[in-house]
Design a binder for these strands. Structure first.
Lengths: 156, 156
DNA sequence: CCCCGTTTGTTAGCTGGCTAACTAAAATGT
DNA sequence: ACATTTTAGTTAGCCAGCTAACAAACGGGG
């Protein structure tokens, strides 16, 4: 009656995501884009000019992490910071022209890879998978909140 | 006719895995075990005494990465290196008693989390998901090999 | 008006992943 | 038997993620 993690579904899922990441890196290697940046570029392509805190929240990363990434990307000329006029604490992040070009390439790479990844899948299967992922996410989030924020049921 | 990565299934899957990792980190925080180590400990619990290269291959990590991890874990007293008697280049990695204790706790945490993650899933659904993950893995691996090792069809 | 708490962002220092360049030991070949 | 190549592991230096401690700007209360 042993639990064998090597057969766990989350373990298999981790391997798939690792392989996906390796593929992304291969496809974007000719641009000045590093491993963590595609997801950030996709977010910026969608909505430019967010403040860093909000941007960090959207891509599920801590503000401190984003600071370093943005600084690097600014040096590469992919993005630029512009201070907010009203609130001097805030700096808003925008894509440069070079950034927009890189974003286009990254988006195409991700599109191709998504196609390849689900080759042979029916639309119905993809919908089923999406539903499962949502349920997993809910389960994990509930578990996390229950453990870290035992604010509910304070007594008894 | 735009591709929107925020709706991509791999994107959703990445979020699920991130949340999973956050939960693992929460559950093991009281032990001298760091984020990348659970998967390594699980492997060692399964088969002790592997040479580093083989161990790296099993957990899908480069040998250089493993060197640093093992060195740190050796300092923490979780594992120990023993030189191979026949081949002086090889060092084999073993769990210590402390390592075995930590492994037990990690395994329990992963078991609980796996249960929570798939709460509400039927056995059939889990089998379906497993099949999908295998197909995704195959698709991505095939794509990677086709691109990086165009050894097949050398001409024409 | 000024002090104090809050919010935004940065810096420092850690783990973990990678590649590239290196060392040392073993295996091979002439 | 010696030189060469191959293999295992390490080191250095990079990017990405985190936490903790900090600086600077905003805002509200007395």
């Amino acid at each position: 009656m042993e639990f064998d993690y090597s057969t766990a579904l989350t373990h298999a899922m981790g391997h798939v995501m690792k392989l996906h990441k390796k593929n992304v890196e291969y496809l974007i290697q000719d641009y000045d884009v590093y491993p963590g940046q595609p997801i950030l570029l996709m977010r910026l392509a969608n909505t430019d000019g967010l403040m860093q805190k909000e941007l960090a929240r959207r891509i599920q990363v801590k503000p401190a992490t984003l600071t370093v990434m943005i600084t690097r990307m600014e040096k590469c000329g992919l993005v630029e910071r512009r201070p907010d006029e009203r609130d001097q604490r805030i700096s808003r992040v925008f894509l440069t022209d070079k950034g927009r070009l890189a974003t286009k390439a990254v988006k195409e790479a991700l599109r191709i890879l998504e196609l390849k990844c689900f080759e042979g899948f029916t639309d119905e299967e993809k919908i089923i998978l999406q539903g499962m992922l949502e349920r997993m996410h809910n389960n994990l989030e509930t578990f996390y909140l229950e453990n870290t924020e035992p604010s509910a049921e304070p007594n008894e």
